[in-house]
Simulated assay, not measured.
Amino acid sequence: MKLAPWLDETWRSLSERLQHGRLPHALMLSGAGGLGKRALADALVAAALCESRGGDGYACTRCRSCLLMAAGSHPDRVHLSFEMRDDGKTPRTEIVIEQIRNLSQRLSLSSQFGGMQMAIIDPADRMNPSAANALLKTLEEPSGSTMLVLVSDQPSRLPATIRSRCQRIQINPPGHAQAVEWLRGQGIANADAERALTAMLGNPGRARDALADDTLSLRSECLRDLQALSGHRARALTVAEAWAADRPDQRLWHAAVLVREDAIQLAQGSRGTLGLTGPAEIPKLAAWFAAANRSRELLATQVRSDLVVLDLLHTWQTPRSS
């Protein structure tokens, strides 16, 4: 397994600590999605369970443990994420207490291979309050032969009591030049790499994915819709219905980024692209940017997506009707 180059320093530190037995019983990998946290967690777990690690700290991929890892059947590795609902048709949107209780019970048993037991909880910030409280009991009474790896895009959603009991490693986006170079190494043209990085706030993983699934086309649609709402050439209800019916989370992301870019342009004395006029609009843009991000979080709940989007778009248009 080869990690992204901006993770090299983090990997060297983790693999050295693993070699000397200095890893904590609970580790939290945090940062925006698309930066390789999950690949890092997988690499660490594989290395911890490998019977013959290489000089670079990575798992050998050939021993009994590695072969079981590749098959997804290693008895000392647990990966806890969303399970299916009781109907067996749709996945849950949160990690529930039963999952944590089952995990704690499993970790209380001895390792089947006589080494470490490794558990990944991903996304950890989607544990509901009861699940988080149950995990806290496990964190307060750690076993010397177990390690928990929590993966979180939004660690602020976790209780402070859990965050304080985990050693946190923050994964940040790489520099622009390194991000472009990495995207070019993925076979992406320089112009496309620059365009995607702008749209995805410098996140190379998300930029690659946006180019692969053509979600960047949504950016121009969102720009057109916000301009139409600003100029009262469209109704918030009509636009909200269209956004809610087709990738609402991604549309809200692009809308928030466009608003952020407008605020920067206005602060620099330039005219924005959304039909706004000057620096007096900047506080409104900042408030709407924050509201858009809160709305994206609501989309992961049971609240109706069309109502979430309508409420947000209504706040975009209403202040401009006066």
Rank of each mutant, 00 (worst) to 15 (best):
D209P: 01
A210T: 03
A210Y: 00
A210H: 00
L211H: 07
A212W: 01
D214Q: 14
D214R: 15
T215S: 15
L218G: 08
S220D: 07
E221Y: 01
C222K: 01
R224G: 00
R224W: 00
D225P: 09
L226M: 12
Q227V: 02
A228C: 11
A228W: 00
L229D: 00
S230F: 01
H232I: 02
L237W: 12
T238E: 13
T238Y: 02
T238Q: 10
T238A: 13
E241L: 09
E241Q: 11
W243E: 01
W243N: 06
A244R: 11
A244G: 13
A244Y: 08
A244E: 09
A245K: 14
A245V: 12
D246C: 11
D246H: 14
D246I: 03
P248L: 05
P248R: 05
Q250R: 10
L252D: 03
A255H: 02
A256R: 09
V257S: 09
L258M: 03
V259Q: 01
E261I: 03
I264K: 13
L266R: 03
Q268E: 15
G269Q: 14
R271F: 10
G272I: 10
G275I: 04
L276A: 01
L276F: 12
G278I: 06
G278R: 00
A280R: 12
E281V: 07
I282Y: 08
I282Q: 06
I282T: 06
L285F: 05
L285I: 10
A286F: 10
A287E: 10
F289E: 14
A291E: 14
A291P: 02
A291R: 06
N293T: 08
N293Q: 11
S295H: 07
R296V: 10
E297S: 09
L298E: 13
L299D: 13
A300S: 08
T301W: 04
T301G: 12
Q302N: 15
Q302D: 15
Q302V: 15
V303T: 15
R304A: 14
R304G: 11
S305K: 10
L307F: 15
V309K: 04
D311E: 12
D311T: 09
H314I: 06
T315A: 12
W316A: 03
P319W: 10
S321I: 09
